[in-house]
């Protein structure tokens, strides 16, 4: 059997606050395989987003071991994690998180520019065209609707052809019409790139399209 793309082994996450420690994730073990889509569902405050961040190396675990592509990332420096994410991990957020001072085209080109790829703008235009927004390349996020912003975010996430895509409630801020459009686009891109898709959602429409659905409550997988 092939090694999982992402592997979490007995991973815990504890955050220190003024009122004391908070155990967000408690001893979670999880494997994600190449090309599969996994939906993570659970009530508010159950640790869904935190587990997603841990899996993508965006958050450091307090204990346990996390591997991405067979490489142990627990204890890795922020810079090395950033370099690991380049071209390998794409992220889509509920609040889109486009950089407001960049145009749609520049937002999509940013991951390529960070990794010093050639012709970043050209590739960005291709990615924008794929999501149907090449005509809005010169527009700023404030000039785009919610659905358009999320499509730009998707283009940005996929422009470097990542093997892993993390999506944190990608339709959480969208209306019904845009939700359906984004879901369709998300899975189309996933299939085109054979990406391992790990997403957090409250949406049944989204979770039912996943290969696997995992439930989480109080930081533990059910």
């Amino acid at each position: 059997m092939r090694e999982p793309v992402i592997s979490l082994q007995n991973v815990s996450l504890t955050l220190k606050g003024n009122a004391g420690n908070v155990n967000i994730i408690k001893n979670v073990s999880l494997d994600l395989h190449e090309g599969e889509s996994i939906g993570l569902i659970g009530p508010s405050g159950s640790g869904k987003s935190s587990l997603l961040m841990l899996a993508g190396g965006l958050e450091q675990a307090t204990s346990g071991k996390i591997k991405i592509f067979g490489q142990v990332i627990t204890g890795m420096s922020e810079d090395n994690l950033s370099k690991l994410r380049r071209g390998n991990v794409g992220v889509v957020f509920q609040s889109f998180h486009l950089i407001q001072t960049l145009t749609a085209g520049e937002n999509v080109a940013t991951p390529l520019e960070i990794s010093s790829s050639k012709n970043p703008i050209k590739h960005a235009m291709v990615a924008l065209d794929r999501v149907g927004l090449s005509h809005r390349a010169d527009h700023y996020p404030s000039q785009l609707s919610g659905g358009e912003q999320q499509r730009v975010a998707l283009a940005r996430a996929y422009v470097s052809n990542p093997q892993i895509l993390l999506a944190d409630e990608p339709t959480g801020n969208l209306d019904e019409e845009n939700t359906k459009a984004i879901i369709d686009l998300l899975f189309e891109l996933k299939n085109e790139h054979n990406t391992t898709l790990f997403l957090v959602t409250h949406s049944n429409a989204l979770s039912t399209r996943c290969d696997r659905v995992i439930k989480i409550r109080d930081g533990k997988l059910l």
């Binding site: 922020e78 370099k83 994410r85 992220v91 998180h97 991951p111």
Partner: peptide, 15 residues
């Protein structure tokens, strides 16, 4: 948030 986004996209400390 911009800095955090750049981090999520792979930007290093020096960048």
């Amino acid at each position: 948030s911009t800095i955090a986004v750049l981090r999520s996209l792979g930007a290093t400390n020096s960048q």
